[in-house]
């Protein structure tokens, strides 16, 4: 592992420790939510990272179609997989929080529904990619699919503004609608999650790249 990677890994570990300290000890209990507020950071940060990763899928799709380099397609597939991971975390923590706050794991809240659809949509892209055996077509058509699926991400993000919802609208045009300590904690949580996400993208990309090379060697041998 190169020196730079180790440094980034160290920084991420430090920020993650700070993130754990801030969510569980530093952040004061909320006026309304009480101690339940601690799940908030575990819920919002992965959600935003997942949106970012799906945005990365869109970018990689555009870049692949533009440049035609296979590495963009591999990164695109990686962002889908990791986006799914972070969406799963979002859904699970959301369900825990929903059970604590609204006494039911699933409420068919518009944002819950759209996030679940988002999960299914990107899982469909993965399944679709697996069904195309030709490598070039898989990259090309997978990229197109990644681009046309993106409006769903926007709709999921906007859903709490379109429908009447149980979800609180935290990010308002005038600024963030929460206490300063919570804001700071969320900020640290965001940085930690983003760094973890980026490291995972890097690692998964290198694994997939190695896999790709292995497949090519096998194809040549046979």
């Amino acid at each position: 592992m190169s020196r730079n990677r180790l440094i980034i890994l160290g920084i991420t570990a430090a920020i993650s420790l700070l993130y754990i300290y801030m969510t569980w000890i530093f952040a004061p209990p909320d006026v309304q939510l009480g101690e339940d507020v601690r799940i908030f950071f575990q819920h919002v940060a992965p959600a935003l990272v997942a949106y970012g990763l799906f945005g990365g899928t869109l970018l990689c799709g555009i870049m692949y179609l533009w440049k035609g380099e296979m590495k963009y397609d591999i990164i695109g597939a990686v962002t889908i997989k990791l986006g799914l991971l972070f969406t799963t975390i979002t859904l699970l923590t959301g369900m825990m929080w929903a059970n604590a706050a609204w006494h039911s794991y699933w409420n068919w809240d518009p944002r819950e529904t759209t996030t679940l659809i988002l999960w299914i949509a990107y899982a469909c892209i993965l399944a679709y990619r697996a069904s195309v055996s030709d490598r070039e077509s898989r990259a090309q058509f997978g990229s197109i699919f990644g681009i046309v699926a993106f409006p769903m991400v926007l709709l999921s993000y906007l859903s709490i503004r379109i429908w009447d919802t149980l979800h609180p609208i935290v990010i308002e045009p005038t600024g963030l609608n929460m206490e300063v300590e919570h804001m700071m904690t969320l900020f640290v949580a965001m940085i930690a999650m983003t760094l973890i996400g980026l490291i995972l993208v890097d690692l998964t990309y290198r694994i997939d790249l190695a896999n790709e090379k292995l497949m090519r060697i096998r194809m040549e041998r046979s």
Partner: peptide, 30 residues
């Protein structure tokens, strides 16, 4: 678009709904 995307796939009839449903659901909700 979904029909065009399902062309290169091996199991075309299975894959079409896989492409059509997730992309159409956002419009369907509205």
């Amino acid at each position: 678009m979904a029909s065009a995307l399902s062309m290169p796939s091996e199991s075309k009839s299975t894959v079409f709904p896989l492409v059509y449903f997730p992309t159409a659901t956002s419009g369907l909700m509205l």
